[in-house]
Design a protein around this nucleic acid. Structure first.
Lengths: 203, 203
DNA sequence: CCTACTTTTGACCAACTGGTTAAACCATTT
DNA sequence: AAATGGTTTAACCAGTTGGTCAAAAGTAGG
């Protein structure tokens, strides 16, 4: 009912994503997903045979939103500083538009870590390339010498974590929803600034 | 059986924490917790009436490990840079000793955000104090002017996130367990260095 | 209108889950 | 050794859950 009934299969996927995100895999009920999609529960099993397969369909769809954008940036021939800026911007914008995407992915991490890693590999994300670039630019003196692992981890941490911890941050720092949106908007520049100023040589 | 049967109540709590962490609240089964503790399922209900109450007991115990350490640092009369160093060190050491603590707390965030925020308040964490200190030191020119919200968020993000995303990071960057432990150890200095060098005035 | 096909449904089921209960067990005190 | 009171258990229960199935409803072509 919520979604147009033009395409049942698609509206199931939408409802499933909604419910799985809020409740997690174990907390989600097939009946609830069916209700949300405005259909009979048996119809879920008609389109996606099992709960597992339904989840997997949702999961793959979600990853297809995340991966392509990040990959194209990582592989583009621009300096590290620019990549940091672009990734911050793209990542935060993506998560701002799909606020529970981070929570959904991390639900899956604790449920089935292996599968996510495999999807990463299949997506063609090659960590070696960015590592090479970072060590190269460090040797050239463009940036301070730093382990690629830490730089990337710092970047992703600062972009993603606020969305996972959103309610805690809001509560702790006394923000309302508008404040939080503003806060997230600011991070588009704060994160690159933090990383770049810590990476700029000549102190 | 795994734990000493000297204190049944305590061994239940240990097993419950183990299972809740791995499976989440909805995924955890009372029978599994009982098995893990080597006791009858009815005994769980004898000590902790319901699954909810058992979870709450585990949750409070977990928070009692986290909060006191952080609070004492935040309220101690030392400069911001030192606080950053001490919090990084304490936080990472804490999470290194209790690797699934972050995942446990995160599970609870998505299950019941409100309760966690309330616990934060009750624990007496006062964000106003640290905010005041940061703006003061910024005015004095000791650190670059920065919004306290972003600084704290950056700090916590970089400390906690790697533990939540551990399997993904390991997979993506091709680390084995030993590598990862080394990586985490390095972050005790990498995180303060990143933040402090971005906060040090006079470029 | 009939036939063949896909989509949708209500009724149903076996397995599982959190929780209960009455009885057994065990350590102390009397 | 009997009584007491906390601890532990096996058996059980009512409600829920993922999943099935046969039949109904819709759809298109001949």
């Amino acid at each position: 009912m919520t979604d147009s009934d033009i395409n049942t299969e698609k509206s199931i996927l939408l409802s499933a994503r909604r419910i799985f995100t809020i409740k997690g895999f174990d907390g989600a009920r097939m009946q609830e997903i069916a209700d949300d999609a405005g259909i009979n529960k048996a119809l879920l099993h008609y389109y996606y045979r099992t709960k597992d397969k339904l989840f997997e369909a949702v999961f793959k769809e979600v990853l297809n939103v995340i991966f392509p954008k990040i990959i194209s940036i990582l592989q583009s021939p621009i300096p590290v500083f620019e990549k940091i800026e672009k990734i911050s911007l793209t990542y935060i914008e993506l998560l701002k538009e799909n606020p529970d995407l981070a929570i959904f992915v991390f639900h899956e991490i604790s449920r089935n870590p292996q599968r996510l890693v495999e999807n990463f590999r299949n997506a063609g994300i090659d960590f070696g390339i960015i590592r090479k670039q970072i060590t190269l630019e460090a040797k050239q003196g463009v940036i301070v010498s730093v382990k690629a692992e830490h730089l990337i981890t710092n970047l992703i941490s600062m972009c993603v974590f606020p969305f996972i911890a959103k309610p805690v941050l809001k509560g702790m720092m006394g923000m309302n929803e508008e404040d939080f949106q503003q806060f997230i908007e600011e991070r588009k520049t704060v994160i690159p600034h933090t990383l770049i100023s810590s990476l700029t040589p000549n102190k």
